[in-house]
Amino acid sequence: MEPAPGAAGNSKLRHVEKDVLIPQIMRDRAKELCSDKVQAFTKCCQETGLLMVVKCRQENTALKDCLVGYYSDPSFYEECKAEYLKQREEYRATGIKKKRQKFTPNV
């Protein structure tokens, strides 16, 4: 017998979970993993002002390539999905929403 939709053991995903909540985790983690490129692009934009569209192309391309690399990686999606399911299970069991911790890669 399958658990009820709101039950702690249910791993089925609703539309909003698949299309909004898990991608949000992916975006947050990808930004953290690409933080050096985010910082380079931000620094370039701050230094060049209105000319950033022209002068920061290289930094923008590097940042976009890094982020898209993570967004299009099926194993990264599964990793973020597992993280979301763990958070959801803890919330359903305790009723307490945890703040998302910053991801630190094991380097």
Rank of each mutant, 00 (worst) to 15 (best):
M1Y: 13
M1A: 13
P3N: 02
A4D: 13
P5S: 07
G6M: 06
G6V: 01
G6H: 08
A8S: 15
G9A: 14
G9F: 10
N10Y: 06
L13R: 07
L13Q: 07
R14H: 08
H15W: 10
E17I: 02
D19R: 13
V20T: 06
V20D: 05
P23I: 00
I25C: 01
R27S: 06
R27L: 10
R27A: 03
A30D: 03
K31D: 06
E32G: 12
L33E: 06
C34Y: 02
S35K: 14
S35M: 12
S35Y: 13
D36T: 10
A40S: 15
F41K: 07
F41N: 11
C45E: 11
T48P: 02
L50R: 12
L51N: 05
C56P: 05
C56M: 08
C56K: 08
R57Q: 15
R57T: 06
Q58V: 14
N60S: 15
N60F: 10
T61P: 02
A62W: 08
K64A: 10
D65G: 03
L67V: 11
L67C: 11
G69V: 03
G69P: 05
Y70L: 14
Y70P: 03
Y71S: 01
Y71D: 00
S72K: 10
S72M: 02
E78K: 08
A82Q: 10
A82P: 00
E83S: 05
L85Q: 02
Q87A: 14
Q87E: 14
R88H: 03
E89Q: 14
E89T: 12
Y91N: 09
T94M: 07
K97H: 04
K97D: 09
K98I: 05
K99N: 13
R100D: 10
K102C: 01
F103C: 01
T104C: 04
P105D: 11
P105A: 15
P105W: 06
